[in-house]
Design a protein around this nucleic acid. Structure first.
Length: 188
DNA sequence: TAGGCCATCTGGTCCT
DNA sequence: AGGACCAGATGGCCTA
């Protein structure tokens, strides 16, 4: 545990001010003495510099990697329905919302297929499929235990075949929010 | 002020 | 060997 701090003290604190001093100190050409080069004999300072450079490069890559991840998350936010309050979804909210949203869309398709097969151009066949944006119903239990890797979300939803309330098919009214974000993302 | 969210650093592990 | 990925730690910022 303490290794982190000892390393930070000795290394990372001067990460931002590090200017390869040790390397430049050697002067251009690095021709000091005619020391015989014994294979892989590196001075302590050189080892430190190499280690620092490697760390800095790794930090840079890690930063870029996280930026890419955030860009992808932003792109995902872009294709998800906007929230009424226009506040940016957090990372976990975005992922859960996307999960619910995909599930709701697939349910919509499934129901539409069901109705198309059943009606066959009959009376109610022209009704558009319901917009199931509110996948997890407020009363449903959302399990955040991560056991949602099954084919459907872990929470129990009101049966798509017999929707409980008409508001299940539309955006909830803002004043009716007990928390629209939590409602949609499943975070309570 | 506590708690949530986030960015960053860091060391370890796995992969190419 | 070097890069990608991951998880833990830490500090900053913001909000209730």
């Amino acid at each position: 545990m303490d290794s982190v701090y000892s390393d930070i003290d000795s290394n990372s604190c001067d990460f931002f001010t590090h200017t390869d001093d040790e390397e430049s100190r050697r002067g251009p050409g690095g021709q000091q003495k005619k020391t015989r080069r014994r294979g892989r004999a590196r001075s302590e300072a050189t080892v430190q510099v190499v280690r620092k450079n490697r760390r800095m490069k790794a930090n840079d890559r890690e930063r870029n990697r996280m930026h890419n991840l955030n860009d992808a998350l932003d792109a995902l936010r872009g294709v998800l329905p906007a929230f009424p309050d226009e506040t940016k979804l957090t990372k976990i909210e975005t992922l859960r919302f996307a999960h619910n949203y995909i599930w709701a869309l697939s349910e919509t398709i499934r129901i539409a297929d069901l109705q198309a097969g059943k009606g066959g151009g009959g009376g109610g066949g022209d009704a558009p499929p319901p917009l199931l944006l509110s996948a997890p119903s407020p009363g449903s239990s959302w399990s955040s235990s991560g056991s949602s890797s099954s084919s459907s979300p872990a929470y129990s939803v009101s049966s798509p075949g017999s929707p409980g309330a008409p508001e299940d098919y539309s955006y909830p009214q803002q004043d009716a929010l007990f928390g629209y974000r939590s409602f949609v993302t499943g975070i309570y």
